[in-house]
Each structure stands twice: as structure tokens, then as C-alpha cells.
Amino acid sequence: MTRVDAFIELDGVRKVFDVRRRTGLLRRERHQVRAVDGISFRVPRGEMVGYIGPNGAGKSTTIKMLTGILTPSGGRLRVAGVDPSRDRTGLARRIGVVFGQRTTLWWDLPLRDSYGLVRRMYRVPEDRYRANLERCVELLDLGRLLDVPVRQLSLGQRMRGDIAAALLHDPEVLYLDEPTIGLDVVSKTKVREFLREVNAERGMTVLLTTHDLTDIEQLCKRVMVIDHGRLVYDGALDGLHAVGESERTLVVDLEHEMPPITGVPGARTVKVEGTRQWLAFPATHSAAPVVAAVAGRYPLVDLSVREPDIEEVIARMYAERPTP
């Protein structure tokens, strides 16, 4: 990918924090922590990319540098040709940010009033603001919530409200940090459908960090993995599963206790507990043949497919890799 094609560019970006630790009653020792350690990647305009890794890997630090909140300790970083740390105010009009654990809405105000303040902050023209709000309200099912104070909203409702707020000024790039954390199935579905729509309709560049691999599977063709501050994988999700030899789990609830399920091609029973059994199969394979084989031979009450945890995938990838 050339520099002309790239909308987000990182070249050898580092972020080092000085940390002081107490080593005695009155003595402290200073040492450096490399939160981000020489990351390089390109994201073209309009691409939706998953940016994943275990806790403490450097994901949030990267996003804070991309928004200008933090200044890199080294390397080169550009978003739409702009250095975020040098023109944070100018870039703010071109980006949207959603942090799953923190809200950007005003706690005691109704959603409608929060959105009005967002319009004034970004100086969004009235006609553009109304059109964007109407579209967000429709796709995120916010109509009946507009007059409800933010503090009275459920987590799922507030998250949908935060996503709408981040898009009212038509940002060119959207950073999403755990946008579906703690949401129920219905809310997750609405959020994912909405993100697909705005990405397709507006050509918005999206960088998504999440611990939910289903988010990545349903939204992103490309995934990047960061571990110990370094980029250790950049490619398709299937390729990540193949490298990490990760497995999905089919959880089967039978009508009555039975011996371990056998004879299912590509799957093996890894646990039996009363009427419930767990079957593991490669994450790169479709669940459909496994489900069909079990359903055709055993008396079922229920079944579900569980995706591998990101930590598990990375652990498998780097089980024998020394810690930096």
C-alpha cells in the first residue's frame, strides 16, 4: 500500500512511559514501560479494521495517540495527512471516538439536549445535523429515548446513544474502543448493523478494538493483533485462527445423560457434565456440518457455538515465544 492510499499511517511508532516504583521507605526507582513498541501499519480510507489484543497490549494507547490525546515518544504518525498531536483541535472535527467504558454524553441531560450541545461544539449546520440525527435515531432505535436523561439509560441504550453522538458531525474516521462491551444480544446486533450501514454509506474509516471476536467476524475483513506493544499479526481473521490453531466450542444440551459424543467429523468431545457436552472443532471450519451431525444423531434440547477468546488465540500463537 502506498502513502497516497493510506488514510491512517504509523511508521515505527513508540510510546514510552516513565514509571516510578517504591524500592524502600523513602526511595523510588524510575524505569520505562514500552506501551507501544515500534508499530507500523497503513489503513486506507473507508476500510473497517479490527485492532485486537489482550489487556495491556497497547490498544488504547494507540488510539489515544491517533486522537492526539497522547504524543508518540518516537516514530511517525499521520491521520488524513495530519499529525494528531500537533493539530488535535483541527483533527477533532474529522474524527469520532467511542469508549465503551466511558460516555461522552451529559449525565443529567436528555439525549436530545446532549446532541444539541454536540452540534454546537462541532458547529454542525442545522440541516446537516437534523439529517444525521434522524438517520442515527432510525438505525439505532433511539426515538423513544431522546427525552430520557442519560443517567436513566441502560448500558446498551447509552452505548447506542454514544455512537450516535460520535457521528453527528460526519467524521471521516471512527475509533471504537469496546463498543459492545456488556451489551445484550439485541443491542449488539443493532450496533453491528448500524456500523455496517454507516461504513458502506459514508465510506467512513473505522478502527475497532474489542474482546468479542464476533464483532470482528461480522464487521471486519482485516484484523491486526498487538501484543506487548508490538504488531504481531496483520491479515484476515481466518489466517489468525489458522496461525493460532484456535478452536470453537459447540455446547450441546441433551435430553438425558449419554456417553461422550463420538463420530462427528472434525470435532472431539472435550468435556461432559450431566446432560451437557462440549465439542471442540477448528475455528477455521464452519459450524454447520458439526451441528448437523450432532442434531441428526442425538436427542437435543439446545445447542450453541462459543467463539474462542482473543487471549486464547494469542496464547496459542505465542506459547513458545519469549516475552519481550
Rank of each mutant, 00 (worst) to 15 (best):
P171C: 01
A165M: 05
L142I: 06
T180E: 05
R202W: 15
D37E: 08
G56D: 03
Q157N: 11
F99E: 10
R321K: 15
F99V: 13
S40E: 04
L142Q: 06
H228N: 14
S40L: 04
Q277V: 01
D215E: 10
P260I: 06
L213Q: 02
D113E: 13
L183D: 00
S286V: 01
V206R: 07
D215G: 05
V290E: 01
N199F: 10
L195R: 04
P84Y: 03
V232K: 08
S304I: 10
G50D: 02
D108C: 08
L176E: 03
I39R: 02
L70K: 08
L142M: 08
I216T: 07
Q32W: 08
G38M: 09
A287D: 03
W106T: 08
D302W: 11
R102C: 05
M65P: 11
A287M: 04
M317N: 10
R30A: 13
P324A: 09
V243D: 14
K64V: 11
W278Q: 07
E247L: 12
T284Q: 00
V243P: 06
M204N: 06
V290S: 00
L66R: 07
E197K: 14
F41M: 12
A165H: 00
T214Y: 14
D309P: 08
R202Y: 13
L140S: 03
R316E: 15
S187N: 15
A293M: 09
T67I: 15
M317H: 11
G12N: 10
G46T: 12
T71D: 14
P308I: 01
R135L: 11
H285S: 12
E178C: 05
I216A: 08
T269L: 02
K15Y: 10
R321Q: 14
R3L: 15
V173Q: 08
T275L: 09
D177T: 06
K188A: 04
A288K: 08
P84G: 09
L174D: 01
K15W: 05
F17T: 06
M224E: 06
V49G: 09
Q101S: 06
L139C: 10
H169T: 00
D113A: 11
R28K: 12
A166T: 02
L303N: 02
D141R: 12
L237T: 02
V124R: 00
D212K: 04
R230K: 15
I310M: 12
L279F: 00
V272H: 04
P84D: 09
R151P: 07
A164M: 02
D227R: 10
V98P: 00
G156D: 11
G100H: 05
L208V: 08
D113K: 12
T23W: 02
C136D: 11
K221F: 12
L219T: 03
D177W: 02
R120M: 05
A92G: 09
Q32E: 14
L250C: 00
R78A: 13
R196Q: 14
D234T: 09
R297E: 11
R192Q: 04
D127R: 09
